[in-house]
Design a protein around this nucleic acid. Structure first.
Lengths: 230, 230
DNA sequence: CGAATAGTGTCTTTAAGACAATATAGA
DNA sequence: TCTATATTGTCTTAAAGACACTATTCG
């Protein structure tokens, strides 16, 4: 460290998204200490000395969800407005995590409480969020919505084996629109490398059993799935 | 500042791109001091105490290019690997700037030297870059390439009034492909809000004079321009 | 069997890509 | 005139969206 240079504290904050009950949810923790004690906040914490940013994000993710692998994690954006933290100059590197439906947050969390909140309530402003976390959540939501269009990221919301209907439910939950099941099926199975059949099938209640798929090798969708559907 | 928390220095680095002689160029400065004295680096510097990140980026951009307005600037990604700066834990917030063809870098620059480098030479590794700046340049290039597809960002490389051919030259330079002028013209002028005719025309050498356009209000392109062209 | 969901086939519309043809300048 | 670039039009092909129809399960 060069002593005469201005220094700041660096944190990571996580926008962890999942699909529960066919709706998008975001993981929030209730703050136990000041500032913003009692308010809800994104899980996160300070980057340790000589710790890489993605290592810090993975560490916080494991601490909060109890799950270390199988969760998509990508850097979202960095926020450093002077007044964003009353404790001083704190720069936070925000990350976006997409997870399949997990259990309730791990009891080992260091926060007073942690729970999944429906995204529509959070986006509507029904939940009081600490710091500038409302803006971070909004940015994370927009990133997720955009990336579903031109990448195979939707599979990150699904377990290792999933049906086309499950994948479609991801798009419907994140975009908030209804998608024609038949055209979606044709599009998904017709895009090389998007999904691969495992050979198995699964019956969920009534109806013909659905074939199971796993994620394919392709990350970019050509041509993309457009958001302007009926 | 909370004294007992690990602190880091925070910098901003700029990937400034422009089109010169129908080729993509990136602005680099020659380092005058250690570490990496004599090597080329991205323009940038330390974020001042209580300075917002985008304010720091704008400040550095103005210092290096002498231009304060009319340049697109967006946050790219933040890099904080422990060993990336031998002086200690330095976290850098990288920004992507897209500019129309500017003059040679401002003489007021605090670097030993500053010049535009052809991107293909830099991407090929012909230029020795300091720190992890080669990776940052690669990320900036990929961001620019991707955003041309689904946004009207290409106009950020053009002066306020431009021709369709100039806009096409941007795509050809950034993507490194040849694009059919006729289909491109139809696509660009047929996408509502992408470009708006100013009414004027301009003759550049031989051939029919081209109509002049300015940037339209639309930022997102629906449907996108796909990169997989002939 | 009827209801429900999975998956296929077909038609229409939209847009991309190839490329002929026309418009308007300079040499 | 010839050449070069701009712009429009036309044709073919790919893919989205609407939707009829078949397949397979459960109650």
């Amino acid at each position: 460290m060069v002593p005469r240079l201005p220094a700041a504290s660096v944190t990571v904050d996580l926008v962890v998204l999942t699909i529960r009950d066919r709706a998008l949810h975001v993981l929030l923790v209730e703050r136990g200490i000041e500032p913003f004690a009692g308010a809800w906040a994104l899980p996160g914490g300070f980057v340790l000395a000589d710790e890489d940013l993605d290592a810090a994000a993975h560490r916080e993710l494991a601490e909060e969800t109890g799950v270390a692998s199988g969760i998509h994690l990508e850097q979202l954006r960095t926020y450093g407005a002077p007044g964003r933290d009353p404790r001083g100059h704190v720069v936070t590197v925000a990350w976006l995590a997409l997870a399949p439906d997990l259990d309730e947050p791990a009891a080992g969390s260091d926060a007073a409480g942690a729970r999944w909140w429906p995204m529509d309530a959070v986006a509507r402003g029904d939940v009081a969020l600490a710091f500038d976390h409302a803006a971070i959540v909004a940015d994370g939501l927009e990133r997720a919505r955009a990336k579903l269009e031109y990448s195979s990221l939707a599979a990150a919301f699904c377990p290792p084996e999933f049906t086309v209907a499950q994948l479609r439910a991801v798009y419907e939950a994140v975009w908030g629109v209804a998608i024609d099941p038949r055209n979606f099926h044709r599009k998904v199975t017709g895009t090389p490398g998007f999904v691969e059949p495992t050979g198995g099938t699964i019956a969920e209640g009534a109806g013909r059993p659905a074939r199971l798929f796993r994620r394919g090798p392709t990350d970019a969708l050509h041509p993309p799935l457009t958001r302007a559907q009926s």
